[in-house]
Computed example of a mutant assay.
Amino acid sequence: MDVLSIIFQVILGLGFLLFGLAKFGSKKLVEEFKHYGYPSWFRVFTGLLELVSAVLVIAGIWNKTLAAWGALLIAVTMLGAIFTHVKMKEPSNKQLMPFILLVIAVVIIVNNFDFLLG
């Protein structure tokens, strides 16, 4: 399971580095957050949270405690994304990616759960 967990950590880490950075410069995301009714500061906060999560998950390749905490932050973020898409009554294909990322984060959490508790 360790190899699978590392693969998932790399996927999530790189993905969330890109997702987090996009929150700062993407006009599309600025418009999406407005459409969802969220203030601009929340987009920036979400971007920062995604960047921190990405760094933790990648550093977690060498430190399982960091992997667990990073994945937990990603899971919470993805629950928020899913909630937003459901609240906005968006089609299920818009909810699919956050759900897949949530499942991957949960796999990492389960694989590193002992380290989450310290």
Results as ranks from 00 to 15, higher is better:
Met1Ser: 02
Ser5Glu: 05
Ser5Tyr: 06
Ser5His: 04
Ile6Phe: 05
Ile6Thr: 08
Leu14Glu: 05
Phe16Ile: 02
Leu18Gln: 12
Leu21Phe: 04
Ala22Ser: 13
Ser26Val: 08
Ser26Arg: 02
Ser26Lys: 06
Lys27Arg: 09
Tyr36Val: 12
Tyr38Pro: 01
Trp41Leu: 13
Val44Met: 14
Val44Glu: 05
Val44Leu: 13
Val44Trp: 13
Phe45Asn: 06
Thr46Leu: 15
Gly47His: 10
Gly47Trp: 08
Leu49Arg: 12
Leu49Cys: 12
Glu50Ala: 13
Leu51Glu: 08
Val52Asp: 09
Ala54Tyr: 06
Ile58Ser: 10
Gly60Asn: 08
Ile61Ser: 01
Ile61Asp: 06
Trp62Asn: 08
Lys64Thr: 14
Leu66Phe: 13
Ala71Met: 02
Leu73Tyr: 11
Ile74Leu: 05
Thr77Gly: 11
Met78Ala: 01
Val86Ile: 13
Lys87Ser: 08
Met88His: 15
Met88Asn: 13
Lys89Asn: 13
Pro91His: 11
Ser92Tyr: 10
Lys94Phe: 04
Lys94Asp: 06
Leu96Trp: 02
Leu96Asp: 00
Phe99Pro: 01
Ala105Tyr: 00
Ala105Phe: 01
Val107Glu: 10
Val110Tyr: 14
Asn111Arg: 08
Asp114Asn: 09
Phe115Trp: 10
Gly118Arg: 13
